[in-house]
Computed example of a mutant assay.
Amino acid sequence: MRTTMNVLLTGNNLALRAGERPVPVPGSDQLLVRTRALALNNADLAHGGDERIAGYEFSGEVIGVGSGVDAGLVGARVAGTTPAAFAQYVVVHHRHVITIPESVSFEDAASLPTALLTESGALSVAGVGAGDSVLITAAASGIGLIGVQLARLMGAAPVIATTRSAHKRALLERIGADTAITTGEQDLVAAVLEATAGQGVSAVLDHVAGEMIAAVVPATRLGGKIISVGRLGGSEATVDLYALAARQATLQSVSYGFTPPETIGDLLAALESRVLPALADGRIKAVVDTVLPFADAASAVERLGSGQALGKIVLRMP
């Protein structure tokens, strides 16, 4: 095997750029994966800090294992999440991957791990199950698109989705949203109350934060839950606590980082029994806007930053 690999670097306030680094060696509890596809996330648009290998999401084949890991995993098709993912070879904690069904391409698989673990985790915190109603804000984001599908898989109805772009409403309806709301053109609270017979939703998965947190409170039913998942509108929010108390609602913020490793491991393991079978038979589908070659990372970043993408942006590895 070669000793160096092609990578995409970030940091020093520069855009993604090509580089070369030594091929990593898997340590204890790690897999070595030959990547086949990489997926971009909004975090990849930030280029601050020291120079480092970019990216967090990938798919590929296991070609080596470290101590404490079952050697039978060599050859497995996997998708996972780890820092420094934008490289030909990636080391990743063995619990931070999922096995890819044969029916799912590497390009589709690369777009899934972050969204699956984040949205399934948030829906679990909200206690969503059959008969619950769910509002998902910024649902046309790469993560939100999976959230809509997972809410339907868990039996939620209606599933209500918001977007700032009217042209994305059709996509939201196609993947399973019962009602798609264009914020800025429609009254969010009125539309949600109309879709829930005046009751409001059982749970909100909010990916916006900022002013959106306060906006969804009156759209929540008595005793409902508001889960802050993303911070597209900023990490700070002002909420009328009297309004929150009047709805007897619970507001909780979640974030699924890379430490401790058990957090992501437990979330991904929870997908095995229900979500991965749904992925295999097509009830859950990746939504990929564009697949570009690894060498065209600049176009991928431009497409992601445009806000026009209908799904994830993926790079195909050579």
Rank of each mutant, 00 (worst) to 15 (best):
V65Y: 00
G72K: 07
P158W: 06
Y242T: 15
I227C: 14
P293K: 13
P158V: 05
L241I: 06
Q308M: 12
P158S: 06
T99S: 13
D296T: 13
F258N: 07
R231K: 09
M5R: 03
S235P: 02
G233K: 04
G147A: 12
V229E: 00
G11E: 11
R274M: 14
P293Q: 09
G200A: 07
L171C: 00
V287D: 01
A151Y: 01
E211D: 10
I53E: 04
G147S: 14
I181W: 00
L222W: 11
G19T: 09
S255D: 13
E173H: 09
G198E: 02
R95C: 07
A300E: 01
V192R: 03
L135W: 07
T183I: 02
A54W: 09
A191D: 10
A156Y: 03
P24E: 10
L45V: 04
V288E: 01
A170C: 11
Q30L: 08
A177R: 14
Y89I: 10
A237P: 08
L38F: 06
V148I: 11
T238N: 14
P26S: 08
L117R: 05
A215F: 00
V23R: 13
E211S: 09
G234N: 10
A39T: 05
P24H: 10
R21Y: 09
L123C: 07
P83C: 06
V229D: 01
Q308A: 11
H94W: 07
A191K: 10
P113L: 07
L8C: 13
G127Y: 02
G129M: 11
T259C: 14
A54H: 09
P318A: 03
G129Y: 12
G49C: 02
V92P: 13
L193R: 12
L45G: 04
T118Y: 03
A18I: 14
F58A: 14
V189A: 04
L145P: 04
V201N: 00
Q248I: 15
G72P: 07
Y256Q: 05
T81H: 06
V201Y: 00
A203N: 05
D296S: 14
L304Q: 08
L116F: 08
G127P: 01
E119K: 12
D132Y: 01
A84R: 09
H207Q: 13
A87G: 10
S273K: 13
I175Y: 12
G305I: 12
H96K: 09
L40G: 06
G48P: 01
E119W: 15
I146W: 04
